[in-house]
Every structure is written in structure tokens, then in C-alpha cells.
């Protein structure tokens, strides 16, 4: 139980990579990994949104839901806070940082429905993380996911240039294979850190 927050952070990036060991957040990994630049933008937005929503949800859960004994509605509330905060962030970006909005903001609505945003909030409750651990876990998971999508898109760009992919494997099929191999590779990190 008394894992150091830094360990949780590293564990969430590598051995417990949310995309490759928990197989979460697959839709954008398969759909938006065609181009390295786009994948990078998506990755950055996910890091931002996941960390932000996990923090908000930690406060909502520990300050509102736990004291009133209303854990039963945490799923609904988490989704609502995620959707609302993403909307708010999009409006803020559009108003005050238009260049950022152009580069990353357009991914925000797509991220709302990304499974890892909700998953991180649920894991945080399940594993009873305190605030510091939640921040570490959320940012770590998101960075791990961003690393995965950037890797996958880089591999796919390279494949497009040099490989003669069989007809039946083009598109999502080859992405699945790449993800499978990456997932096997990440199992190699398994012995590095153990967290619950």
C-alpha cells in the first residue's frame, strides 16, 4: 500500500502501460495513428485532460461523494465532470490561446469519449490513491498512452513508406498486429516495478 508516488508514476508509464497492458483507449489508437503529427497532438491533449479530470474527480469523490455515502453514482458523476471540464477547457483555449486550440484543441471533444479518461478515475477509486498518488498515476498513465500512440504512428508511417503490406492486412489489421507486438515488448518491463 505504501508505494512511493514516483514508483506509481513510472509503473503507469511502462510496466502498467494503460494501452498495452490494460488494452484501454483502443479506438483513437487505431483510428488516429495514421500520422505522427496528429498522434503527437492527440497524445499531448490526452496527458492534459486525463491529469486534469483525475484531479477534479478526486476532489469530487473525496469531498462530495464519500462523505454523503453516494459512491453508487460515481460513474455518472465522473462522466459528467469529464464532459463538462473538457468543454470548459475547449472554450478557454479558443478564447485565450487560439494557436493551441488549432494544434490540440480539436482533439478535446474526441477525448471525452476516450475510455482511459474514465478508467483512470475509476482505478484511482479502486486503488484508494491519495491526492499525490492520483496525480502521479493519472499523468503517468496518460504519458504511457501518449508514448504508445506516437510509437504506433511512427511505425505506421515507416511501414507506409517501405513495406508492401498484404491487402488483407491494410489499415486497422496491421495496427492491431503492431499493438500486439508492442504489448509483448512492454511485458518485458514487467519486472521493473510492482504496484497494485
Amino acid at each position: 500500500m505504501n508505494t512511493h508516488p514516483l514508483l506509481i508514476f513510472i509503473a503507469a508509464i511502462f510496466p502498467h502501460n494503460i494501452a498495452l497492458t490494460y488494452i484501454l483507449g483502443m479506438c483513437p489508437l487505431i483510428a488516429i495513428s495514421k500520422n505522427l503529427k496528429t498522434a503527437f497532438g492527440m497524445g499531448i491533449s490526452v496527458i492534459f485532460v486525463v491529469t486534469l479530470t483525475a484531479v477534479i474527480n478526486w476532489f469530487v469523490y473525496n469531498l462530495i461523494l464519500l462523505p454523503t455515502n453516494s459512491q453508487i453514482i460515481s460513474y455518472v458523476i465522473f462522466i459528467i465532470t469529464i464532459a463538462a471540464s473538457v468543454q470548459l477547457v475547449e472554450m478557454l483555449l479558443e478564447r485565450f490561446f487560439p494557436p493551441l486550440q488549432v494544434a490540440f484543441g480539436i482533439f478535446l471533444p474526441l477525448i471525452t469519449v476516450n475510455c482511459i479518461v474514465l478508467a483512470v478515475s475509476l482505478f484511482m477509486v479502486l486503488r484508494e490513491y491519495d491526492f499525490i498518488k492520483t496525480v502521479c498515476f493519472a499523468s503517468g498513465s496518460a504519458i504511457g498512452w501518449a508514448i504508445t500512440i506516437v510509437t504506433v504512428s511512427a511505425i505506421k508511417e515507416k511501414l507506409l513508406l517501405i513495406a508492401d503490406i498484404p491487402k488483407g492486412l491494410k489499415g486497422p489489421a496491421i495496427t492491431m498486429i503492431i499493438l500486439g507486438i508492442l504489448s509483448l515488448a512492454f511485458m518485458g518491463f514487467g519486472g521493473m516495478v510492482k504496484i497494485r
Partner: peptide, 23 residues
């Protein structure tokens, strides 16, 4: 007790909606 969570959920929903409309 299910009443508290349901009331709470509606209150939170209401607050968030008002907040978003205001924003």
C-alpha cells in the same frame, strides 16, 4: 439509501449546466 445520491446527482448536474452556460 438511494434518495441522497439521486438528489445529489441532480444538484451536481444542475450546477455544472449553469456553470457551462455561464462560461
Amino acid at each position: 439509501n438511494l434518495i441522497t445520491p439521486v438528489i445529489l446527482m441532480n444538484i451536481i448536474l444542475f450546477i455544472i449546466t449553469v456553470l457551462l452556460i455561464f462560461a
